[in-house]
Design a protein around this nucleic acid. Structure first.
Length: 597
RNA sequence: GCACCCGUAGCUCAGUGGAUAGAGCGUCUGCCUCCGGAGCAGAAGGUCGUGAGUUCGAAUCUCGCCGGGUGCGCCA
């Protein structure tokens, strides 16, 4: 089992195993002890909610191998098992080819809640999965001299969450922002600045000025093809090291990065390296030469250098006829550089689905160049495009793009408006001074969650009302549940922590409490699965489910007004465990958990 | 034309070999003298695009077909 604790972690923290893992081990041990089934043949499944059991063993394959009736085999197995004294399970039964294991509610409750308290903010983490293996995660990667828009949000938000999940799993993550800071687009800007003698540096919004200049030049070039030639020439000059070109290009980067850095700070998104495409520029000649020398690429009569994969994939260019390089060249260089620099266990690209072929070509190229290791370890996490209400893609040129700041500001405004309504209705504890920061947390949460709650492959049809909704499966609902938990704990009194610490957790046997506990116990599994599949949605789904089950419990079982002081303490402890779980789950998504809202 | 992705409730999506396919939104009906109603309970709503196949068992795996999207050499 991959989840086997290692000597390394055991020595590091000395914590009890996760309940989820303990249950599986206990069930497997009980089955194997019958002598009727081998450990290697035990595959356990989680029963559907309508089945009165917590873990199940489908006997069909084993029964078939033994040539016996599944139903009878299950009966025989269940009959041969006696639950361990003081173990997590207290009943084992057979039902239509399944051996069902049901937990002892009191012991289960204690194990789950104590496990959460023991780990605190680290609940859900499992450093033994990654064991410090280096993993490169490339995400966000906006273009210099452009504004970030809703399209960049997906890569940024998904990549940020993948980084956090991999860190929780003990990987040594290198988060890289692969800036678009090289290419013909800079030739275009240099040509425009040169031709029109512009100096946008001191404009009130210099990046906006650059976006406009770029559009203006491209429009003009449609009428006058000579302008396009000038743009290509300027890029060539930039590559060749022309002093003015280099100096101006650096200024473009500086003013754009000043703006991007503000945005990343607001989003709470971080990187370990910000190697733009230009970083690899000095390596390009060598990479192209190596590809040619190894017979992977061929120089064509017109001077262009192309890679031909035969039937496997469409061919593509590594060098243009004018000698300049392309995006593909730089990505091949990037992939090889990462291999030489880090030899990572994984090299992950969080980039839109429209670049699937591109990455397939890049990975296949490095494979054929003699680096199968990095090709095998590279993975493109692709996501569908964001489109407008009619299904059309947002276009910077047509002016239909929605900029990132617009989205964030609108989200925060809506959160604030709702909060003010709640305050006016006497349903919120938020004070005037707290409205600003909490609205920010809620607004950003909505925007993040809209990109994380579903699998990435599907496209997203942009819809303000849907993205910024705050009921049902939304970040707001989860944050709200967290705030309610914290509110209850505040109202429990000064000594709430002592009450929780002294609670008799075995009292949490009501069905509503048990359902909450079962969901809480699954967090480690959800995080591991999210890490394996690079799928933050798995964590989002877990977090939402915990919030929903707690809301049901909350409605049915009073905490502060529980029948007895003992029960009150136990329910307070469950509330504290839920608050901790929700906070940890949201943190993995890059979303904050407010104390009140 | 070829390749890849998607097709599950009116809408947006979970669910990748196990038991009666689940949520949210929307619609309809209930629940505030009681811990925060941004909430809770209930109802209606499904031939899992379609046709074969593999399997004790298929929304899930294989093949064909239909529909939608994306990509396929000098942009990134």
């Amino acid at each position: 089992m991959s989840s086997e604790p290692t000597a390394l972690t055991a020595a590091a923290d000395d914590l009890p195993p996760y309940v989820h893992d303990a249950l599986r081990r206990e069930a497997t041990d009980l089955l194997v002890a019958t002598g009727l089934v081998a450990a290697g043949n035990v595959t356990l499944v989680t029963p559907k909610p309508n089945i009165p059991a917590d873990l199940a063993f489908p006997v069909f394959p084993a029964a078939k191998a033994a040539g016996v009736n599944p139903n009878e085999f299950a009966q025989k197995l269940a009959g041969a098992i006696t639950p361990r004294e003081g173990g997590l399970f207290d009943t084992v039964s057979a039902m239509g080819g399944f051996v069902n294991f049901a937990v002892a509610p009191d012991r289960f409750a204690r194990a789950v809640v104590e496990g959460i308290f023991a780990r605190g903010d680290a609940y859900g983490e499992d450093k033994s999965v990654g064991r410090g293996e280096k993993t490169v995660v490339e995400y966000s990667s906006p273009n210099i001299a452009r504004k970030m828009h809703v399209g960049h949000l997906r890569s940024t938000v998904i990549g940020n969450s993948i980084r956090r999940i991999l860190l929780a799993l003990g990987y040594d993550v290198i988060a890289d922002n692969h800036l678009g800071d090289w290419g013909t687009q800079f030739g275009t800007l240099l040509a425009a600045l040169d031709q029109w003698k512009l100096s946008p540096w001191d404009d009130p919004d210099p990046v906006q000025s650059l976006v406009e200049i770029y559009a203006r030049y491209n429009n003009a070039a449609k009428e006058d093809p000579a302008l396009m030639d000038a743009a290509r020439q300027w890029f060539k000059k930039l590559e060749d090291g022309d002093a003015w070109a280099r100096e101006t290009w650096q200024k473009l980067i500086d003013i754009t990065m000043a703006e991007f850095d503000r945005t990343y700070q607001r989003l709470g998104v971080a990187f370990d390296t910000t190697h733009g495409e230009s970083y690899y520029e000095p390596m390009l000649d060598e990479v192209v030469q190596e590809a040619v020398d190894k017979g992977v690429a061929k120089v064509e009569p017109d001077g262009a250098v192309a890679v031909d994969f035969g039937e496997a994939l469409p061919s593509y260019l590594l060098r243009k006829t004018d000698g300049a390089t392309l995006y593909q060249t730089r990505d091949v260089a990037t992939c090889l550089w990462r291999w030489r620099e880090y030899a990572p266990a994984r090299n992950i690209y969080v980039v839109g689905a429209e670049q699937k072929l591109h990455f397939a070509q890049v990975f296949e190229t490095v494979r054929r160049m003699g680096y199968p290791e990095i090709a095998d370890r590279s993975v493109h996490i692709s996501f569908g495009a964001v489109t407008d209400a009619s299904g059309a893609r947002f276009s910077m040129r047509k002016g239909t793009a929605i900029f990132l700041d617009e989205v964030l500001d609108e989200a925060v405004e809506r959160a604030e408006a709702t909060m003010r309504e709640q305050i006016a209705a006497g349903r919120s504890e938020v004070t005037e001074a707290e409205i600003g920061p909490i609205s920010e947390m809620l607004g950003l949460g909505s925007v993040f969650y809209a990109d994380l709650y579903q699998g990435p492959e599907r496209g997203i049809r942009f819809d303000w009302d849907k993205m910024l909704a705050f009921d049902g499966n939304t970040a707001t609902y989860i944050q709200y549940t967290h705030a309610r938990c914290r509110s209850i704990l505040r109202k429990a009194g000064e000594d709430a922590a002592a009450q929780v610490a002294g609670a008799d957790l075995s009292l949490l046997t009501e069905p509503e409490a048990q359902v909450v506990l079962k969901h809480l116990a699954r967090m480690p599994q959800a995080v591991r699965e999210a890490g394996e599949k690079f799928a933050p949605a798995t964590v989002a789904d877990w977090t939402y489910n915990v919030a929903r089950e707690y809301a049901r419990f909350y409605d049915k079982c009073p905490v502060l007004r529980a029948e007895t002081a003992e029960l009150r303490a136990a329910r307070l402890a469950l509330t504290a465990a839920v608050a901790q779980g929700l906070k940890n789950g949201l943190a993995l998504l890059g979303i904050g958990a407010p104390e009140k809202m």
